[in-house]
């Protein structure tokens, strides 16, 4: 199928700003799904609130646009009640890790089979540029006019510590890698996390004088490296990309099937 067969053209044009990285993520995600060849009827996309979460409206799957931070909780109900469906949960950084932080770590801990995509643009874009838990110390935002003193989460380390069985990171610049890790994440049986660094030139870029979309993507190109690379040893400041964790551990819904077997024997 062509990429346009996966979108709802009726609802275009999309509402993202010129230069926003979210459209690149949408494109990469649809290509990953197309390459895997999953039927559209078997995919449920659940999203929360924010710029990133509007992605669900544009795709021709079963789509559930929920409450700020709660996407994974809704997705857990969908997955538990219909385990054969593929759950894809795109979230923003504030959505997933501020208001939704508790749901995030507990979904990871359960290792329930779904793919959480954290579209990390380090800012609350929908509300106009406030700092998020991923903005980082020393950044500027409309609610940090004197510089941000909040320290950031490392999404990869947090996900690993919480028990996610697949953890990867990529950027909006590295589209081929994005498609590749998304495919692996979707095919992985268990809770998979893909952090995608995306650019918000409108707010994060402007407030922090990082230039436009092109300059922000060049930053991703020049300041990231493959996981475990020699470049990282030479320059610890570089952000690693790639698959950090991939392990086979019992998946929640499969385990619940065993509970049902145990309960129905007696």
């Amino acid at each position: 199928m062509a990429i346009k067969d996966y979108i709802r053209e009726r609802f275009f044009p999309h509402m993202w700003c010129a230069g926003c990285g979210h459209g690149i993520v949408l494109n990469g995600l649809l290509r990953a799904i197309e390459q895997i060849g999953i039927s559209k009827n078997d995919i449920v996309m659940v999203s929360g609130i924010g710029c990133s979460s509007r992605i669900s409206g544009y795709v021709d799957f079963h789509t559930l646009h929920t409450l700020h931070g709660r996407a994974l909780a809704f997705a857990t109900g969908v997955k538990m009640s219909r385990p054969e469906l593929k759950l894809i949960v795109p979230m923003g950084d504030g959505d997933a890790l501020a208001i939704g932080g508790n749901h995030f770590i507990h979904a990871a801990r359960r290792n329930i089979d779904m793919t959480a995509i954290v579209m990390n643009n380090r800012i609350y874009g929908m509300t106009g540029g406030q700092y998020s838990p991923l903005s980082g110390y020393g950044t500027s935002a409309t609610t940090a006019p004197y510089s941000n003193i909040d320290h950031t989460f490392d999404v990869v380390n947090l996900s690993v510590a919480a028990g996610a069985s697949f953890v990867a990171r990529t950027t909006a610049y590295h589209v081929m890698q994005m498609i590749s890790v998304l495919k692996q994440a979707i095919l992985h049986k268990g809770f998979s996390v893909v952090e995608i660094l995306t650019q918000c030139p409108t707010y994060f870029g402007r407030k922090n004088k990082l230039g436009g979309a092109v300059e922000m993507m060049e930053y991703f190109k020049n300041n990231t490296t493959s996981v475990g690379s020699k470049a990282k040893q030479e320059n610890p400041e570089l952000i690693e990309r790639g698959v950090f964790v991939r392990k086979e551990i019992p998946e929640y819904c499969s385990e619940y099937e065993k509970i049902i077997q145990r309960a129905t024997i007696g």
Binding site: L67, R70, A73, F74, T76, G77, M80, S81, H103
Partner: peptide, 19 residues
């Protein structure tokens, strides 16, 4: 399922109802 809080509980049942 025992969820992490009541917020998640009500969200989970809404998701399950949709199926």
């Amino acid at each position: 399922i025992q969820m992490e809080d009541e917020i998640a509980s009500v969200c989970a049942i809404i998701g399950a109802s949709l199926t």
